[in-house]
Amino acid sequence: MATTVLPPPPPPPAAVETVVDFFNLPCPIPFEELHREAMMSLKPDLFEGMRFDFTKMLNQKFTLNHSVLMGPTEIPSQSTETIKIPTAQYEFGSTFIDHPRLLLWGRILTDGRLNARVKCDLSENLTFKANAQLTNEPHMSHGMFNFDYKGKDYRSQFQLGNGALLGASYIQSVTQHLSLGGEVFWAGQHRKSGIGYAARYNTEKMVATGQVASTGMVLLSYVQKVSEKVSLASEFMCNYLSRDVTASFGYDYILRQCRLRGKVDSNGCVAAFLEERLNMGLNFILSAELDHRKKDYKFGFGLTVGE
């Protein structure tokens, strides 16, 4: 993939059938959302146990959110066996949207974790984003500020986080379908720095992306839209330094009454996620995940009310 990342010399316009209008290229999607389609199909938010979400719109701009999650949660341990303890938590959240200029988003959990997000358009092209995660445990809180600049056929982003984290990324449309990007980051606390490249090729029928980073990560994904309702996705992830390789394949069916996502991966993990629309504003969720290798089976059901 590294070879494709390097910008190829522009072919002579006579050689290609359709002349590429280099001054009228579409704006690429943000660098961090490069694998959006593949992520959407392959990474549904699987859960275990029962969940209940209730969303209440107070007025056009203000929304309240209540959520209950009950079920076993895994606690990290050194042994290969997974240890689960039953937990129950309640989450309260609120969202304020002043479309399209301002977005304020907050979630607080009963165990004291707080998530907050701000997205604000400073001018037509410049967007400011802030993201904070606060916990009771020391050294586990995170904060991050992003400045996004959106140009005509490029996007750039500057990141500033706690722990002396600095990052910048840039993505540029090269042709009508192809966009190339790069990023650099520096984490002062961990004394790490890195550089990464990415490429994305999308047409109406398919999306192919590739990303390499100096941390050893290689990520390739391919999504084929078979029809309006069906898309198939595959992903290959490999870490050169830690030597783990994962390949996964999934489907995504968006039907009139439901959305069904399923995937299999090379770790022996099979997952399916079904969102069934029972009524207007009433969704039923079923989640299943089988890990054949670890013999870890997770099933969940839930209800989403509102929206």
Binding site: Y251, L255, Q257, L260, G262, V270, A271, L274, A288
Partner: peptide, 14 residues
Amino acid sequence: TTFLVLVVPLIVEM
């Protein structure tokens, strides 16, 4: 079990 999780819901929904 894989069939049960991946294919059966698909058939039902289709």
